[in-house]
Design a protein around this nucleic acid. Sequence first.
DNA 1: ACGAAACGAAACCAAAAGGTGTCATAAAGG
DNA 2: CCTTTATGACACCTTTTGGTTTCGTTTCGT
Lengths: 126, 126
Amino acid sequence: MTASLPKHDVFQAIADPTRRQLLELLSDQEMPVTVISGHFPMSRTAVSKHLRILADAGLVKDRKVGRETRYRLDPEPLLELKRWLAYYERYWENKLSVLKHLVESDEPNGAAPFPPLTVIERKTTE
Amino acid sequence: MTASLPKHDVFQAIADPTRRQLLELLSDQEMPVTVISGHFPMSRTAVSKHLRILADAGLVKDRKVGRETRYRLDPEPLLELKRWLAYYERYWENKLSVLKHLVESDEPNGAAPFPPLTVIERKTTE
DNA sequence: ACGAAACGAAACCAAAAGGTGTCATAAAGG
DNA sequence: CCTTTATGACACCTTTTGGTTTCGTTTCGT
């Protein structure tokens, strides 16, 4: 167990626009760092750090080829994102039902309008 | 034009685990800030700021009811996320083709192995 | 009319994020 | 060999983020 414990999760990894562009660039083919960083208006080191974060999230894989390290997309962790998103699909599928909900809870201050207070635990840093 | 120019984008908004929990909590029904913050191990103000960020991204809507402000989910911006994700679906649908790609680009240093260097413009802060 | 409740705004703070440049090392290539 | 190339590891800096507390304003309830 404790299988690889990703230090960065997918949500955080894709939050940065540069990293999303990296994923797009690497989706076609694998590339070494120098070539990759040539596509971005920042230092190679900066790009390298972004790649590290993506790797931590499992979104890219690397392999050494001679003196270079080639990176390529691994889309697998995006499945988690897809599953997360799937939960909300039902909400936009019928926005009308949302509207209906709004109208129904019309009373300014209902009797017991809100669910039992369940405190959401702070995820302890693993 | 310049239609509402969201200061925070969806990707950044959902990057924070607390904000994802907020979305989940608000997906069922609308709630005023005090009730919402009762579910989280942090100050009301902190929760309020998270709600602000979600609102900036268009993920929640608020309406004033008396002295309280009730927040509720608006799933619409998640469509952007869904579209972004859709681009990558073809990659995990056939991970085998990715593998094939890898094997084919076997030569240690091919003639012109990488695409023409197109520098990706830094998105100027709007 | 007045105290309490609900909330946003502001000032503040520590830590994380996103950059930079320099350096050490390993592999390639005369 | 000796130089160049590719890269990761550091040390460092600035801005953003996520949190706090305090304060003012509006609305409610009595």
